[in-house]
């Protein structure tokens, strides 16, 4: 059996990985909470963001953390445009059509990236990529710690945005009561697009936080999508705090069950939690009553 020190370290590792999961889930939960759609293109958009960070680094030597300042607004605009001019009009507001359109988008993005960047698995080399922070006997990866801090910061910023700004309030109004919001004079199509843009912006930050310690290839985003769904469900669809706490929790569960059951079977732990939560408390741990 493992010593408590190792289990403790596994928990820490899980928290650090889980934070980035949370950030990816944040985008998903936001879009779900407001638009009530399951965005199939989420993984492909994450891949696109990672390639954007990669390309900026390779072409202009932009540090991945600095590239947040460029990629985030870029992806906000991309998300806004996608929802406003592609997903919205093409799906006619019908759930199953939205699903198909986002599926079509994911095929398009993934293979577009394949055509541009080819299929190689690429990494970027930053001087701090191998840095560690020593805490007693523990060696904590510096890029992953930054990932943890960055994710929590983004979640807090997003939450502040939602409660403090007029746009944030409008988003919440649309999420709660679409018809009522329309009657209040809120431009629902605009709010939808803003929300989708915010979801993509979260992905851009996540991509920048991932790149110093991860790799990118045209299919890499898929690895994160299922786990992000789990987190969204666990945290309650549409809940920002839920996504953050759910992400950290799932990261921990994955890490510890991976340690105890093996990485492969450990994945079952996640899905069993997922199924149990859905069956027993489908609104999630933090979700509002349906």
């Amino acid at each position: 059996m493992y010593s408590p020190a190792i289990i403790f370290e596994a928990v820490l590792n899980g928290l650090m990985t889980g934070a980035v999961y949370a950030l990816i889930a944040l985008g998903l939960t936001l879009v779900y909470g407001v638009l009530h759609i399951i965005n199939f293109a989420h993984g492909a958009l994450l891949t696109a963001a990672m390639f954007a960070v990669f390309a900026l680094h390779v072409a202009f030597r932009v540090d991945p953390y600095v590239s947040i300042l460029i990629v985030t607004p870029l992806f906000f605009a991309l998300g806004y445009g996608l929802q406003r001019f592609v997903i919205g009009p093409a799906s006619h507001g019908d759930d199953q059509n939205i699903l198909l359109v986002t599926l079509g988008l994911s095929i398009l993005i993934e293979n577009g990236l394949l055509a541009i960047f080819r299929s190689d698995t690429r990494t970027i080399d930053v001087p701090y990529g191998f840095n560690v922070v020593e805490v007693g006997p523990l060696l904590l990866s510096q890029p992953k710690l930054i990932g943890l801090a960055g994710s929590v910061a983004v979640a807090i910023l997003l939450w502040l945005f939602m409660v403090r700004t007029d746009t944030g309030k409008a988003i919440r109004a649309v999420a709660k009561e679409r018809l009522g919001a329309t009657l209040m004079g809120i431009d629902v199509a605009h709010i939808y697009a803003i929300t989708f843009g915010l979801g993509c912006a979260c992905l851009a930050v996540a991509a920048a936080l991932l790149m110093p310690s991860f790799y990118v290839n045209p299919r890499v985003g898929n690895a994160f999508v299922l786990v992000a769904f789990t987190i969204v469900v666990l945290g309650g669809m549409g809940s920002i705090a839920g996504a953050l706490i759910g992400g950290l929790f799932i990261g921990m569960v994955e890490s510890v069950s991976g340690l105890l059951l093996g990485e492969s079977l450990g994945q079952i732990g996640i899905f069993l939690i997922f199924i149990l939560v859905l069956l027993l408390r489908p609104t999630g741990l933090f979700g509002a009553k349906a």
Partner: peptide, 12 residues
Amino acid sequence: IAHPTPSRDMSN
């Protein structure tokens, strides 16, 4: 130690 492909994290 078995791990799935893709794996998101190999720290464990």
